[in-house]
Design a binder for these strands. Structure first.
Lengths: 157, 157
DNA sequence: AAAATAAAAGACAAAAAAGTCTTTTATTGT
DNA sequence: ACAATAAAAGACTTTTTTGTCTTTTATTTT
């Protein structure tokens, strides 16, 4: 298991994809997004419905409809996406899952985790979705799950 | 969801508990451990079987049996416990779950995550299980899930 | 208005994680 | 040798996460 849930990974990847793909004011359909980020189409649809309800992505139905992001959404921090899907347990919870853990009654790892939780939170707060559009345009970053030949070559190098 | 799986949280808490409780060479039974860290007894038993197979805890059956830790186990880093249960996905995987993500073909968050993954790994490597015995003796740290009165008082302060 | 399109919504299914209960095996004390 | 004890092992259930499939609703084009 990684840091985020699978659902959250799809959410982040799809948001990057939509942001990049609709910079010019166009829209992109669920099929293209799912293919572009290697995610199951209908599962992703659910995720985008959530993100849509929370205003992180916009959508329009019907012909030439699809998903897009407006300027204000582009400027939102990545933390908003993570919080919309995984909640804030990653930033606020105790590393050992203790409800009673607090500054006054700390678990053994309390201070160690505080540093890490805060660095994760800060990173996600200070990076906006828009920040990555440049990277993606340069095409030296990828959002697809695996391009085996490429991947194998990279790992061996 | 926190950083670790629930299973891993129980594992860490139980290891701290056993280490502290058997400093003097005695043994501690599963019932007492489960009560001490607020975990389901039989579920914890499975976890301890795993940890036992990997040499992180020792056990003896029969009367006056139970779990304990020897000196070499006490000196092992916390990373060993985490890796035994959750694997190394937390330290090595891509933050966005991309198989193809690598130094050469990085995902958008690659460098940001590298910093975080490494800080988590370093923290878990440099802290040994033994390190926390002192804290626990001082009784200003807790391994129990919730002591409601205490917890409520703490949060409001 | 009708047909076509595409997201929204809802009902399931499969897999993984978390938790429970029972039986077996090893050890110890009598 | 026998009874008692406690971990090991196995079978099972529940819950959560992840994934699939179908129907409905809204929008656009003709």
């Amino acid at each position: 298991m990684g840091i985020f849930s699978k659902t959250c990974e799809y959410a982040i990847r799809s948001v990057f994809f939509i942001a990049h793909r609709t910079e010019n004011g166009s829209r992109v359909g669920i099929k293209e997004i799912a293919a572009g980020i290697s995610s199951p189409e209908h599962f992703l649809a659910k995720i985008l419905q959530d993100l849509s309800k929370k205003g992180i992505v916009k959508s329009v139905k019907g012909p030439h409809g699809g998903f897009y992001m407006d300027e204000s959404a582009l400027q939102r921090p990545l933390a908003d996406v993570v919080e919309a899907i995984d909640g804030n347990g990653l930033f606020t919870g105790c590393g050992l899952g203790l409800v009673s853990c607090s500054e006054h009654d700390p678990c053994p790892l309390h201070s160690e985790f505080k540093v890490i939780r805060e660095s994760i939170h800060q990173m996600l707060i200070k990076t906006t979705i828009k920040d990555f559009n440049g990277d993606l345009s340069l095409a030296n970053t990828s959002l697809k799950k695996d391009d085996f030949l490429k991947s194998i070559a990279d790992k061996n190098y």
